[in-house]
Design a protein around this nucleic acid. Structure first.
Lengths: 150, 150
DNA sequence: AAATAAGACACAATATATTGTGTTTACTCT
DNA sequence: AGAGTAAACACAATATATTGTGTCTTATTT
């Protein structure tokens, strides 16, 4: 693993910790001795996302996570819970027979997941991917949520 | 590392290959015996990208790479070259003093990098991030390129 | 300001990954 | 169709990573 500071190719592991779905390693360059962090994780599901305009784009965890994090900004949701949620979604993606999914359907999956975690994040996310047309849509959605759990 | 198929937590490495900036491992689940691939790579530079509307968003390699790959579609550019290019950009990002950069500047860096790799990809990329206003902009850019190298 | 959570660091005992070599398969560009 | 590239698979000899335990620091949230 190349050192991110001096580009030397030899580094050693000084610590490694494994969690649910990833392994974090702390590495040290054998030359400059600076340290940096690496992550090992399963490769993304090889699935095409079919956009509204029918363009196909490879699924990208980072991109999906970015959108989710935006919806979760300042909300009391741990990164771990979000990662576990994304893992569940990816499990579903891996079972798709034709290796493709409409972005709308993927959005619904994310929304479903967020609904379990945090209502505010859910609403924020839904407002973007469903393209709520006006504030009325928010109100409707909020009412639905309010009825269900106080 | 959790098995992506059966969720079992014990897996073993059956092969591992290291290249420039990442390590690919082939793992096998100790329970279901299915195999899957993992990648280890350095963590993304912790840098905020400042968008046109002044919103800040954490840098995300996957997202950046997605845009670059789109510009490189069907062009004779190896994934390796692209990764090396992104690595160079990330090196610069890691040296930023305030840990933030205007998305426009990041775009310029990418454009500069693509220009070295492939003129067509360069033009495609530039046309998106610079928001070329009409076909005239393309022509201008193409002329600049033509003069330089036949 | 206090509490909590996450990451960084150290160390020691043990288990597991790495790497060369070579073959096969799948895919993409010409 | 052919060339070229990347990934998957196997095996054997060797080197390196893992994991518990505990401490310290930094950032975040109330």
């Amino acid at each position: 693993m190349k050192c991110i500071f001096c580009n030397n190719t030899e580094t050693k592991v000084v610590d490694s910790r494994e969690s649910e779905d990833l392994t974090r390693r702390r590495r040290e360059c054998l030359i400059c001795q600076k340290r940096f962090t690496t992550y090992e994780r399963a490769e993304d599901p090889q699935v095409y996302i079919i956009k509204k305009d029918n363009r196909r784009e490879l699924y990208n965890r980072g991109k999906l996570k970015g959108g989710i994090l935006k919806a979760c900004e300042k909300r009391p949701i741990s990164l771990e819970k979000i990662d576990i949620g994304i893992n569940k979604i990816e499990s579903k993606l891996r079972t798709l027979e034709n290796n493709e999914i409409q972005s709308k359907l993927l959005g619904e999956e994310v929304a479903k997941m967020l609904k379990q975690l945090d209502k505010v994040a859910y609403i924020r996310f839904a407002s973007v991917y469903r393209e709520f047309e006006d504030i009325g849509d928010f109100k409707k959605e909020i009412q639905i949520l309010s009825k269900r759990r106080g």
